[in-house]
Simulated scan of single mutants.
Amino acid sequence: MRVVRNGVALALAVPAIAAGAYLLAAAVLSRLAVEGRPASREGVEVFVCTNGIHTDLVLPAVTDTVDWTIDLPDGDFPGAGRRASHRSFGWGDRAFYLETRQWSDLRLATALSALFGRGPSVMHVYALHSPAGSLDCGVVVLDEGQYGALAAFVRGSFRRDGEGRALPLPGSGYGATDLFYEAVGHYSPVETCNEWTGKALRAAGVTMGAWTPFEDGVMRWVR
Rank of each mutant, 00 (worst) to 15 (best):
H124G: 02
R107F: 13
L32Q: 11
G164E: 15
A95I: 15
F47Y: 03
A203G: 13
P15L: 02
P131W: 08
W103E: 04
G173S: 11
L112I: 13
S40P: 07
L24Y: 01
A149V: 10
Y147R: 09
R118W: 15
A152P: 13
H129V: 15
L72Y: 06
G148K: 13
V139S: 14
R41S: 08
Y147I: 00
G173K: 00
V14T: 14
D105I: 12
G148H: 11
V141I: 01
V141L: 06
S113T: 12
F116I: 01
F158V: 02
E163A: 14
D56H: 09
F47H: 09
A18L: 12
L57M: 02
S121N: 07
V206F: 02
R101Q: 05
N51L: 08
R165F: 03
T65W: 13
L24N: 00
D71C: 10
S172W: 03
H186E: 02
R101H: 12
G81S: 04
T63F: 09
G209W: 09
G52M: 02
A9D: 04
L135D: 12
A152M: 05
V8R: 07
L167M: 10
E35F: 15
R101E: 01
D216S: 09
H186T: 12
A166R: 15
L72H: 11
A61S: 12
L72I: 05
G117E: 03
D143V: 12
S121Q: 06
G156Q: 11
L98M: 02
M219W: 00
A11H: 15
R37A: 13
G79P: 14
V4Y: 14
A26N: 06
L12T: 03
N51G: 09
R165L: 00
A21V: 11
A127V: 08
A9T: 08
A61W: 00
N194H: 01
W103A: 09
T50F: 10
D136K: 15
G90P: 08
A151H: 06
R94G: 08
S134M: 00
T177E: 13
G75Y: 14
G205M: 04
M1A: 14
A109T: 09
C137Y: 06
M219A: 03
R159E: 15
R220D: 00
S40W: 05
A152S: 14
S104K: 01
F153P: 00
D67N: 03
T100V: 10
R118Y: 15
D216C: 14
F89A: 07
T55Y: 10
L23E: 10
C193A: 01
Y181K: 08
P168M: 12
L179P: 04
S130G: 08
E35K: 13
G185V: 04
C137T: 12
A33I: 00
A16E: 09
E191R: 15
R83A: 06
P60H: 07
R41M: 14
P168F: 08
W103K: 12
G138N: 04
G81V: 13
A152I: 03
A204R: 04
Q102R: 13
G81F: 09
Q102H: 15
M208H: 10
F214I: 06
A176F: 10
V154L: 05
D74V: 15
Y181P: 04
R155T: 15
A166Y: 04
Y22M: 02
A210E: 12
G138C: 03
D56T: 09
T50A: 09
G173A: 06
Y187C: 01
Y174W: 07
E45R: 15
A80Y: 05
L201P: 08
F116P: 04
T110L: 01
G20D: 07
